[in-house]
Structure formats: C-alpha cells, structure tokens
Design a protein around this nucleic acid. Structure first.
Lengths: 368, 368
DNA sequence: CTTACCCGTGAATCAGTAA
DNA sequence: GTTACTGATTCACGGGTAA
C-alpha cells in the first residue's frame, strides 16, 4: 500500500505545484489521501465602477478574470464542484479550511453543510490595518471569515489545543484572530515591482491554521495556491504540501518563494504573535452600554461648566458640541483637554470622574 | 391615505407586541411600511434532529428522501418563508439585520442574497466575555455574526456615518464590534429567578444597530421579539417598533420591560450630522453677496495654480474656465475635485479656503 | 545614526441631486 | 430613465527621503 502510494501511478505529488484546473486535478488524485485542505477560492466580488481615495488616487481593485462569475448560480456550481472534489481527497479524519468575505462565504458555508462536512468553528480574521471605507457609506470592512470543518461529524480531527493556547499567552485561543494584512517585504512583487498577486494571505494566518489543526508530516492540499503562502508555511512547519494553480505567473513566484524557505525557521515561528496594545475605549461606548444615559449632565472638574451627553457619544456644552476632549478644551480656553479626567457625573450624591467608567470597561475587556 | 394607514384595517400596530406566528402576522401587515427589520431567529443548534419552531411545533420537511439533509431543508424552508414575508414589509429604501452563529448564519446569508437583498456589511459581534470551550476540542466560540442588507441593490439605505464615527472616538466604525454579552441587572429573570430567555441580546448591540442605521421616528420590526431588546432600545432612541412573539411568557416580560423604559430627551437624540445633510450653496452666491469680488484671484490649496472669479460664479484658470470643481479637477488632472476645499483666497495677508465663506452663508440661512 | 516627515497602498459589491 | 454636475470622503503601516 505504502509503496504504491509512494511510487505507483497514483503517488501523491508531494511538495509540488500542479498546473491546471483544480477540479480536474483533484479528481485525478487518489481518494482519502490528504489530511487538511486550505481553500482560498475567488470571492466573486461583483465590483461596479472605479473607486478613488479622498486624495483622488485610484484603488487597485481585484478585477481579475478569475474572479468573474455570471451569477450566483454559476458561483454555486463552481463551489459545489471543487468542494466535492476536495472532500473526496480527504482522509476520514481530515478537515478543511475555507476563507472568504461576505460576498461568498455564506454560500460556501451552506454548501459545506450540504455536502456533509461538519463545521467546527467559524473564525474571524480581524485585520489590524484594513482599507478604510473611503466614501463613508458603510462600515469599514475590517475582517474576513474562515470556516473550519471536518470531513464528517464522526471525524477525529486534529486540534492542538495546547499549542494554540501557548500562542495566545496561556489562555484558550478564541474564534477571532487579530492579524495584520500582508504588506512590506512579505508581500511578493513581480518584475515590474507591482504586487504579484492581488490577494496574498499573510503567513501569520496560515501559521495559526497549520499549527493548530495539523501535525508534522501531514499532507496539506491547497487547490487555489496563488503565490503559495500555504506551501511556504507548510514547509517551515515541517508539513507536506500539494499546490494547484492555473496561472503560470503565480506558480513561478510561488516556486521561487518556497525554494527560499528554510524549515523550522525560528524567526518564522514568531511572526504570528500579535501585539497587545492597551485597548482604546471610546466615550460613546459608555453610553451604548448604559453606564451613562443620553441627556445626562456632566460637570467639569472645577464645577464651573456643564454639558449634556448625546446618544452618539458626543456632548453639548453651552455654546458648543463635540467630543469630551474638544468641549472640555473649549470651556477652558485651552489648546487641549483630557475629557476623561475633566468631566464628572453624579451617582448617589457623589461626583465621580467618567474615567472610572472607562476603567470598568477595560476590566471587562481584560476578562476576555 | 394617511387616515387609512392610521385608522383602517391595515393600520400599523406601532409600539405593540403582536401574539402569534411571525410569518402569518407579517403577511397580514401592509406591504412597504417598515424602515428596518431586526431578526434574531432560532439558531437551529440541533440541525441533525427534528426542527422545531419557537413554539415547539415541528417543522415538516418537504423532502424526506435524503434523510441526512432533510433538517437543513426544513430550516431553509423556514428561513425562506419568514425572510420573504419580511422583505414584503420593507419600504423600497428599507434594510434588514439578521444575527446568527455558524449553525445558521451561512444559510441565512445565502438566502438573503437569493431573495435579492443586497448585503452591505457582515458584522462580527466579538464577545468580551464568552463562555469558554470546556472540553478543549475547539476554539472558544467567542463571536456571533450579523448581516446588514438593504432591500435591493438600488436602495438608498440609512447610514449615520458621523454618528457611528463619533461613537468610535473619531475614527470610522469597523465591521467588528467588541461588546459584552447580556448579564447582570440587564439580564431579565422570570418569577423563579432564572433567566427569562436563553439568548437575550445586549442593549448595547441594538443601540449601535439602531443609532447607525435608522432615524428617529423610523418603524422597526422584530419578528422574533423574545424579551424585547429591540423594542426597549427603539423606545429609548425615539424610534417606533413592532414586535412579534409567539410565547406568552416572553411577551409578558417584554411588555413590562418596555413600559419601564424612559425615552431619552430630544436634544440627546440629536446625533452628529454629515456635511451631506447641509443645504447646498452655489459658488455664485458668494459673488452675488459680495463676499468675493469678480476679478479676484483664487489660489489652489497647494499654491501651484491660480484662477480668477467671474461675475456669474464661474472661474477662469490658465487654459480653462468652468465651475470651481471643474477647473480644480482639470488643474490637478484628477477625475474630480471639491472646489470648496481646493480653492483659497487672500484676506489681510491670510490665505483662507472659500469653504469658510460658504459656512458664513449657511449660518445666515440657519438664523433666518 | 536618529528622528521626522512624506508617500504609497490594501479582496471594495463606496453618491446624490437637478435638469 | 438618462445625463450632467456638484462635492463628500481615509486608517494603519511600511518604506524611503530629508533634516
């Protein structure tokens, strides 16, 4: 058996990038031979016109042919096919990760369930540095969603609980991961110096996925290999990979990149540590959480000025409205003012600085 | 028309909790009459068993020949029905929020898209104090997902950008919201002292939703009302609500809760306004009123270009004449330009943006 | 050599009104 | 419905250059 798998016609082409359509290629590989699949398929963004930043520069949007689908039906057909091919390749105890945005992730999640995959977690990648919403028409799209699912409900999937706990400063890893997007030297460039791929994923993300849900020596398949982040991190971590990629330009960049990777590079093991900054608390959050009521009166530390709280966290003084800091500075004729210590409120006859409420919120946040 | 809506058979039962099945009741209400729907439907945590409605009646699966997926089918049928009924009730510019976990949110998101809703954002409610994963077999399930969608792609949905920005310490609100789960005094108890509802949502969550995507006076429908968080926050914020709930016990708790809510006073409900809401002022008016003289020179913000004001409110640059916006865009070779902030004039040795003069005019208009 | 400043850029379903 | 015009709108970083 093992000999066949290693040497026969059906041998797994380990640590290679296969050229071609991922559905065809997956269907040509031996069933039940892969431990983990990581899939980052086209998102079907459905972008309309151009978008400019406030400084008039144009956003370099994802307008590649591979992201164009004629309808939801066409996208669903595509999803059903690649997912079925992927599921066939998985060992009985295998698992899959998919990543997407609101454009496609709901359709992928539903199809995973339809095909009998068993969802273990949905994971939110919270981007520490997302692109802002330039027109102010929506919320900043600051996250993407991953779904982790086993081949079937009965699968004894791999989960390295302690490793992830260690990675998370000794407390259980949660379903929301704060990681920066891929920029700087990690972002691969083409010969012209432009980004080699429009949607390169950060290695920190794959590091966490592979560390947490595979063992050394496991076989990891990425059917939408792109510039090979999955392969690069798999190699670092001593896992085997199989990549499938249609576009020659991407394959070329990926091969060069992976060839340069050294196994068990200790520095690489540290890239995924996210920094923990002191959380910023907006004054509006006190209102939102009911610690202060809209309409409630604030008094200045010297008792000379008052202001009223509004529902959105701005405040209104005698002749001005704005943030707690702005209004405080205005009242005192000062260039700046720390509103947290300047403004007080009354509870049970006591006058208390609003900073006390901020400390309360911070304590809650630390509890996790 | 108005009389009919207020007093006729089709009158909207504002600020009431309606008893019964939400699909039937929604179908009995007048179409196109609701501004926002907030839906927190059953999460269907036991997808592999029978599916039950909130009243514990069993949902019949239409297609039983594929037993493994029949329960998904039943959940999808249920989702399709209530969502279609909800969509019918929305005004053309209306919008919907749904909330769920990985058990059901993918199916809801896909169905929203299938029915022609237009997804605006998916939002992650990151729980600051989730329940840990006791068995250590998965990641701590520390978030839930909300989807915000307009009735159709062309809808001019409500988004109070500035208010949410104020709520977030002056930077635009992101798609991930850190909020604690509902505990303590806010968590409603029944007579026995147990929690009155298993999945009561925190008021802070609804505060952000309603402040950000409705205006005072808007009609908000919650078809899975439960203990009435939507109604309580709607009342606080000066919005109208309609609740639908099958279970008498929940309706009773909700009514008592909402009756005790005090509306915030009007001034507190004024939120930060977008500049887009300000009245338009034609540049020519500045000339007309003598704030700028025909022949006066304007200088671009970077000091590189000049233009001359003409009596009709057009301006002339080196090789082009037109509006302040057209000439500015031409000078910079940009697709567009906000002439109000681009062009400056000189007074007493100072260089001042012409937008300052527009603000003067607007102030005069407000006094009038 | 260090610090300060400027510039570039990222999976984006990104406008509203009047004629 | 279409066209034309007005005019509102950005956060976190990394890298490079200037001081």
């Amino acid at each position: 058996m093992i000999r066949e798998q290693e040497q026969g016609a059906n041998a797994l082409p380990l640590n290679n990038i296969l050229a071609g359509d991922c559905i065809e290629i997956m269907n040509s590989l031996p069933a039940g031979s892969v431990d983990l699949i990581f899939a980052d398929p086209p998102y079907n963004l459905q972008l309309r016109g151009d978008l400019h930043r406030p400084d008039n520069s144009k956003v370099d949007a994802v307008d590649n042919d591979w992201d164009q689908f004629s309808s939801f039906k066409a996208y669903d057909d595509f999803t059903r096919e690649w997912m079925a091919a992927a599921r066939r390749l998985l060992k009985p105890n295998g698992a899959i990760w998919v990543i997407g945005s609101y454009h496609n992730v709901f359709r992928m999640g539903a199809e995973l369930q339809n095909q009998g995959f068993w969802i273990l977690n949905d994971v939110v990648w919270r981007k520490s540095n997302p692109m802002p919403n330039f027109r102010g028409k929506r919320l900043t799209n600051a996250h993407e969603t991953l779904i982790w699912a086993s081949k079937q409900e009965a699968s004894k999937y791999t989960f390295n609980y302690e490793a992830l706990k260690a990675l998370n400063e000794g407390v259980q890893m949660r379903s929301d991961w704060v990681l920066p997007i891929c920029t700087g030297h990690e972002r691969l460039k083409d010969e012209a110096g432009d980004k080699a791929h429009p949607t390169q994923k950060p290695e920190s993300l794959l590091h966490r996925v592979l560390l947490g849900t595979t063992n050394p020596g496991d076989v990891i398949l990425d059917p939408f290999f792109g510039t090979g982040t999955t392969g690069a991190v798999a190699k670092m971590l001593g896992r085997e990979f199989i990549g499938i990629e249609r576009e020659e330009a991407y394959r070329k960049v990926a091969k060069k990149r992976i060839d340069a990777v050294r196994k068990f590079d200790k520095e690489a093991l540290q890239v995924s540590q996210s920094k923990r900054a002191e959380p910023r608390v907006a004054f509006g959050v006190l209102v939102e959480r009911g610690l202060l009521r809209p309409g409630e009166e604030l008094v200045s530390i010297n008792g000379r000025h008052t202001a009223k709280v509004r529902a959105d966290g701005s405040i209104v003084g005698r002749d001005m409205k704005g943030s707690i800091h702005q209004v405080g500075a205005h009242m005192e004729g000062a260039p700046s003012c720390n509103g947290w210590t300047y403004w007080h409120f009354k509870r049970d006859g006591q006058t208390v600085p609003i900073d006390l409420l901020r400390q309360q919120i911070r304590a809650e946040m630390r509890e996790q």
